[in-house]
Amino acid sequence: MNAMKPEDIIKPENKVYSRPRLLDERNTHYCPGCSHGVVHRLVAELIDEMGLECTTIGVAPVGCAVFAYNYIDVDWVEAAHGRAPAVATALSRLNPGHLVFTYQGDGDLAAIGTAETIHAANRGENIVIIFINNAIYGMTGGQMAPTTLLGQKTATTPYGRRADLNGYPLRISELLAQLDGTCYVTRQAVHTPASVRKTKAAIKKAFQNALEGRGTSIVEVVSTCNSGWKLSPAKSNEWMAEHMFERYPLGDLKNV
């Protein structure tokens, strides 16, 4: 029997997935198993599919996604920590007809940048906020985030987060859903193929809202940080489903 050769397999008709055109061909700095890679891929795919390559401006945060501009081939502005919604406000208002989105983590969006987040959303800026909630500060080495769960151990809550000392895990998306300026607030995840598909649909809807000038859209993606959580990628997904979804249930919080 003739052994199958690689060229017999690598054929257009056999292709099930390829790197999105706008996702750069380079290794990311993200840890293996991190959710960022999946969300980056979705963003890159959608910008391409929706024909927005030339009219998109992304705003990168401070945090693990600080280098997002190295991976997705659109124009980018790197913001100071927490200030992405303010930066995006000006970009959006001064560049009508463009898609302006921020890509932020929980510390950036819900701690140091809470004021900018709430007020940009309250003004109903025509921007999309993609919010990666992994309940920890990944880049600085696993410290407590505003979304860290009670009892969760981090570098700055080595005995677990305590409400009396550290307050409560912040459900900022619920808060943002209360604001008149937001048109779409949803919470998704990317731990299963089905959830990835849902997240893609959510980001697409958010992009469409911005293009139609409908106000601020927020797509929270409950994510893993296997390095920060000190778990394997597979265990991280399990831990997330078991613990995070209880505090941060998936689904639309607002869709008007």
Binding site: V59, V77, A79, A80, R83, A86, V87, A88, T89, A90, L91, L94, A115, E116, H119
Partner: peptide
């Protein structure tokens, strides 16, 4: 703070 960062964006 927001104002100067809007300036930065613009």
């Amino acid at each position: 703070v927001a104002a100067i960062n809007m300036v930065y964006g613009g």
